[in-house]
Design a protein around this nucleic acid. Structure first.
Length: 102
DNA sequence: CAAATGACGCCAG
DNA sequence: ACTGGCGCCATTT
């Protein structure tokens, strides 16, 4: 299985993710806008799901527009709390308080 | 080619 | 806050 997604897209998404500072989070839509692909939030999510294959990136700092954590990824919460990211409840960060101002 | 599937987003109830 | 419905895009069935 070769490259499923456009390598250019993967490169752009991951370079943005790399910039998210510890203690902050970014949303899929936010990242999509930053790379000039406003309507491609879903693709950003797809890239994230395969990010491990391309290297090590702070994927735990990417959440959806409501601040919900990745469904099924247990370690994410601990990773965020280790950076003192404010949580709203078990599955959500307080996005208002910790969204990365780009 | 039609329908379904997702680490999504926005709006209405 | 939670749930549907619709729009969005690439990939898969």
């Amino acid at each position: 299985m070769g490259r499923i997604l456009d390598e250019h897209l993967i490169y752009e998404v991951l370079s943005v993710v790399e910039e998210i500072p510890a203690g902050k989070v970014a949303t899929y839509g936010q990242i999509a806008r930053l790379i000039g692909r406003d309507k491609n939030a879903r693709l950003v999510g797809r890239v994230m799901s395969m990010a491990e294959y391309y290297g090590s990136y702070p994927c735990h700092r990417v959440v959806n527009h409501a601040g919900r954590l990745v469904p099924g990824w247990k370690e994410q919460r601990a990773l965020l709390e280790a950076e003192n990211v404010p949580m709203k409840n078990e599955n959500h960060v307080n996005i208002k308080a910790c969204q990365w101002a780009d």
